[in-house]
Design a protein around this nucleic acid. Structure first.
Lengths: 206, 206
DNA sequence: ATCCGAATCTATAATGGTTATAGTTTCTGA
DNA sequence: TCAGAAACTATAACCATTATAGATTCGGAT
């Protein structure tokens, strides 16, 4: 019987006990994975250790994280998708689609240090671990379709227009491309400038 | 003792017997892998089967292909690197860097059917197998540095200029981005247009 | 021609991620 | 209260990959 006085974390009370427990398990896995990865490095931790630390079986771990070890510390990507679409759709009037994307990317992971230390440690772990960087990119790319739709809706083009899809893809590649630069924000700006204006050739001197 | 009359395949006679045998083993592995992949699908074949078919041990297989199963049917990427750099450096006078890249990409894998049937089967296998597509992309991206240097040299910029690196990356992403379109060549053209001219916003109608 | 060292290959076993199976417990909704 | 679904468990398999230690073959120098 669930006491009305027990602390349930941030779980909306609209969830039944089952969903709540499932979310708790997922959280336990994320927390355990992040803690162990930070301590021993990604390759220094086995999924068995993570399962142990979260006090679940290995089979359960994989039931929660179908994409495997790398996915443990990430969400399923839904967040990014809605966030990107909203940034494009609800941008201030007069702002171009690219400006909106520029602005919201700049507030994201690799481009700002305005993060709680917990998230910063997580970001540093991801950036410094190839397998996690790669999976992070996969998550970004997974919202290519959603972003393309948003861009198409705002620009009066077709979502299957290759130009739209390419723009979406190129924007979503930015974190991996600029994330490890000495000055990520400057890199971000340079890339958006390229996307806005195209490649300007300086003629070769004779 | 090597007979002067034995057929040695296309091996340059500058190689010693050791290098020749090594190349033969590598070739046997590639051939076996491609044959089996085509017949049973990528996931339907184990590295043990491939090693068997090529008549080498599993350990030998991995000695030849450090990047793992997916790398079996690819070369090490050196080809692409020199080919890209040459395409940029030796382009006809008056042609822009992007035009040169556009032209040489169009002659490549997914964008032409002017290929011997053997290569076409290989291409189709790669395009239809996620793991192989992903590895192919990795190979392209691995020449980002070389391409960036070539572009920088021709455009009077610095190879570490983020704009140069981004352009190189974006060009190298094209095969994965356009390779599965109904009309890959049209997609290729659209993307190069985007890279040349930038994103042109059609103002939202009121 | 011979010998040494390096490169290649082999068999074998271990590691670690991932999936399949079959059975148990726990929750939900009727 | 009961049936069925969902989540969990233990266990065993499968497969890619790496480690180890030893055998063979080759190249180059003497």
């Amino acid at each position: 019987m669930r006491s009305r006085f027990r602390y349930d974390g941030d779980m909306p009370t609209t969830m039944g006990r089952r969903e709540r427990k499932k979310a708790q398990t997922r959280r336990a896995l994320s927390d355990a994975a992040l803690r162990l990865f930070c301590e021993h490095g990604y390759d220094g931790v086995t999924v068995a250790q993570i399962a142990d630390e979260a006090d679940v079986s290995i089979a359960t771990l994989f039931a929660h994280v179908p994409d495997g070890k790398e996915a443990l510390i990430f969400d399923d990507g839904t967040e990014r998708r809605v966030w990107l679409a909203a940034a494009v759709r609800d941008r201030p009037p007069g702002q171009s689609v690219l400006e909106a994307l520029h602005q919201c990317m700049a507030a994201r992971g690799p481009f700002t240090n305005d993060l709680p230390p917990e998230l910063r440690r997580k970001r540093d772990l991801i950036v410094s671990t190839p397998a996690l960087r790669e999976y992070s990119r996969k998550l970004w790319i997974a919202s290519e379709g959603a972003l393309a739709e948003a861009i198409a809706a705002e620009s009066g083009r077709d979502p299957s227009d290759m130009t739209v899809r390419a723009l979406a893809r190129y924007v979503l590649e930015i974190p991996e491309l600029a994330g490890m630069e000495p000055d990520p924000l400057a890199a971000l700006n340079a890339i958006f400038d390229l996307l806005e204006s195209g490649w300007r050739e300086s003629p070769k001197e004779a």
